[in-house]
Amino acid sequence: MQILGHFNYWIFIILMMCGFYMVIASDNLIKKLVGLGIFQTSVFILYISMGKITGGTAPIVIDKAVVYSNPLPHVLILTAIVVGVATTSLGLALVVRIQEAYGTIEADEILAQDRDDSL
């Protein structure tokens, strides 16, 4: 039960590790950004999960006495989503410029070209 009860948090950890692994392991700069996106998105699930209260509804005041979910983490994560969008778009813009300058977006080929430059 304990494990199932923490289902959201398990998903958070698995997604986070998947994303992190992609960032480290892939050589393709776009795939790295995809990994980074998954990594950031996993944190959204963490925040959204912790604001949710079992049986809680959206925090709109109605006459009946009900349990409300905590809206603050959800609002916070809206900001983080914006940050994530900005990061991804800036990253993609950089990749476009790298492609123009190097003719490739593979990290090892870029590294090889840089090594030739410094010789």
Partner: peptide, 20 residues
């Protein structure tokens, strides 16, 4: 220098991981 682009990209990846 075109290496500035790669440096900025690397910083972006590391910096985002740190901020996250």
């Amino acid at each position: 220098d075109r290496r500035a682009l790669v440096a900025a990209y690397q910083y972006l990846v590391m910096g985002t991981v740190g901020a996250t």
